[in-house]
Simulated scan of single mutants.
Amino acid sequence: MAKTMQVSLVAADREVWSGEATVVNARTLAGEIGIMADHQPVMSVLAAGQVDVRTVDDGHWVAAVDGGFISVADNHVRLLCEYAELSHESNFDEAKRLMDERKAALEGDA
């Protein structure tokens, strides 16, 4: 049986997911990171993109995040971001509209 760790994905407005997992994959500003149980402590800045988690019951979920922070210590992975949405909860058309609005706002600031 694979060793497990506690994982928490928290957005500014809610706890998106919390539970046990065997693997977490995410993208940081320094590159991709894969985390398994007993990983060395890490704190890094998350890049906007996806977080991929393998749960203990051979489940799998993916979340879109807008960046944030990842902290790994004592077999607990904490992912903190302003906005996160699980793929199975999302509406593609609404997500695309929001992304286009955010992109236009950023281009307007340049």
Rank of each mutant, 00 (worst) to 15 (best):
residue 41 P to T: 04
residue 43 M to R: 08
residue 73 A to I: 03
residue 103 K to N: 13
residue 40 Q to V: 11
residue 10 V to T: 06
residue 103 K to P: 00
residue 77 V to N: 06
residue 49 G to F: 00
residue 59 G to H: 12
residue 48 A to F: 05
residue 56 V to R: 03
residue 40 Q to T: 15
residue 10 V to E: 00
residue 56 V to Q: 08
residue 104 A to I: 13
residue 70 I to Y: 02
residue 39 H to T: 08
residue 87 S to G: 10
residue 19 G to W: 02
residue 98 L to C: 15
residue 16 V to L: 12
residue 4 T to G: 03
residue 93 D to V: 15
residue 79 L to G: 09
residue 6 Q to K: 01
residue 90 S to W: 10
residue 14 R to D: 07
residue 80 L to D: 13
residue 13 D to W: 02
residue 91 N to P: 02
residue 40 Q to H: 08
residue 19 G to Y: 00
residue 83 Y to Q: 07
residue 39 H to A: 02
residue 101 E to Q: 10
residue 87 S to V: 07
residue 39 H to Y: 10
residue 27 R to K: 12
residue 69 F to L: 10
residue 84 A to M: 11
residue 66 D to M: 09
residue 110 A to H: 05
residue 69 F to K: 05
residue 68 G to S: 05
residue 37 A to E: 04
residue 107 E to Q: 14
residue 109 D to Q: 15
residue 89 E to K: 07
residue 1 M to C: 05
residue 99 M to Y: 09
residue 106 L to C: 15
residue 106 L to E: 15
residue 26 A to F: 00
residue 34 G to F: 02
residue 30 A to S: 08
residue 12 A to F: 11
residue 82 E to M: 10
residue 109 D to V: 14
residue 73 A to E: 10
residue 62 V to D: 03
residue 12 A to C: 01
residue 17 W to R: 00
residue 16 V to I: 14
residue 16 V to F: 08
residue 36 M to T: 07
residue 40 Q to Y: 08
residue 10 V to M: 01
residue 109 D to L: 14
residue 25 N to D: 12
residue 108 G to I: 00
residue 73 A to W: 00
residue 24 V to L: 08
residue 5 M to A: 04
residue 104 A to F: 04
residue 80 L to G: 13
residue 32 E to G: 13
residue 104 A to C: 08
residue 78 R to M: 14
residue 92 F to Y: 11
residue 66 D to V: 09
residue 52 D to M: 14
residue 95 A to I: 12
residue 14 R to M: 03
residue 20 E to V: 03
residue 16 V to A: 09
residue 68 G to P: 01
residue 14 R to P: 06
residue 38 D to W: 03
residue 96 K to W: 06
residue 10 V to Q: 00
residue 110 A to M: 05
residue 8 S to P: 00
residue 4 T to Y: 03
residue 105 A to K: 06
residue 35 I to M: 11
residue 107 E to V: 04
residue 73 A to Y: 05
residue 35 I to L: 10
residue 86 L to N: 01
residue 104 A to R: 12
residue 109 D to E: 15
residue 18 S to R: 04
residue 72 V to L: 07
residue 93 D to F: 14
residue 93 D to Q: 12
